[in-house]
Design a protein around this nucleic acid. Structure first.
Lengths: 188, 188
DNA sequence: ATGGAAAACGGAACAACGTTCCGATACGTC
DNA sequence: GACGTATCGGAACGTTGTTCCGTTTTCCAT
């Protein structure tokens, strides 16, 4: 079993990181997290040797939630509407967690842990939605979920200067209309 | 007239920056640029007080080129094909100049100079293409060029880890198909 | 309960970044 | 040719992520 003080510090670090991430974004400095947790930086690094380990631990639950949402929408909505709603939810997710979307899909090795978790959970859920829409012939097939969700995330990253929260939504809708454009029933 | 040594250093800095940007991306450190130019960092900052000033100076010509291409395509191609070709060219531009696309559309104040130059030159050129396509009823209207080109740039940023150069192209085509989907002649 | 080995701690230290400061230098003018 | 000033180079500052190490705490064996 782990030492009691170690467990206490892990808990404090997770709580501190969660708070810092939501208020200042995932790019917040490690010193700020450690200070809020009331520990030294070495303690942080002892428990989370890679920066991504801390981020994974904080956001794992939220990724689980959004994965579950995909499966739920698959059962209650038409395929294209399910995709639309899920993607919109994901857009909000990325826009809310400052920097998380960029981190997830940036290719930065520091976030590889979280990306792997995401790609082996949320991405397959989206792939099932895409396949269902392709089978129903309301969207084109052959679209890779990881690729699409990365694109959605890219589009959803808010511009620091701008306050146009609808911008991402417009561009994402455009992308989804591209999927509809290629549906076999329509044309091309 | 400027002092001879100052002019020499400006030229050396521009040449050094251009080389460093193309080989190591726009995020390369100022020390590397100054060292290649054979000057101190203070000399760099004297002539380019903002980081963006140096980037603007290096990439202004390339922005001019891509702006001219839009006007040329407008005269030689059908509206939607002009947009397709121009956007593809812009995709290559962003993918080639490592980090430039992200810098241009990131909202980071450090690059505001370059963004302003871009938005007052290249973006209006694209807007003319979009308006022409909307008039010809082959694409939906009401799309903002700055918004669209920002989205294209977001999609074109290459993942450092991946070597899938076609990924960006696929997602951009999807976005353009979204524009076609909304064309008045089609439906919606 | 208590000693002592081992795990974990805090904070200083290191490297790299963008940026600023300042004594030294070199240029152009008179 | 000498003087005034624009310009220069590199050290210095503040902030990053990460590592190191002397000190403290915990927990098990006695």
């Amino acid at each position: 079993m782990p030492r009691a003080d170690a467990q206490r510090n892990v808990d404090a670090l997770l709580a501190a990181a969660k708070e810092e991430f939501t208020t200042h974004g995932v790019d917040v400095g490690v010193r700020a997290i450690a200070a809020r947790a009331g520990v030294g930086t070495a303690t942080l690094y002892r428990h989370f040797p890679l920066r991504s380990d801390l981020i994974v631990a904080v956001f794992r639950r939220e990724i689980d939630d959004i994965t579950a949402l995909a499966d739920q929408l698959a059962q209650t909505q038409e395929p294209d509407e399910a995709i639309r709603q899920w993607v919109q939810r994901y857009t909000e997710f990325v826009a809310t967690k400052h920097g998380l979307g960029a981190a997830l899909h940036s290719g930065d090795p520091a976030y590889s842990g979280l990306r792997e978790y995401f790609e082996s959970n949320a991405a397959p859920a989206l792939q099932r939605l895409l396949d269902a829409a392709a089978d129903a012939r309301v969207m084109r097939g052959g679209v890779d979920a990881i690729e699409l969700i990365g694109a959605v995330a890219n589009l959803s990253v808010p511009l620091p200067g701008s306050s146009d929260t609808a911008r991402a939504g417009r561009m994402v809708e455009l992308l989804l209309d591209g999927l509809r454009y290629g549906a076999p029933a329509a044309r091309l």
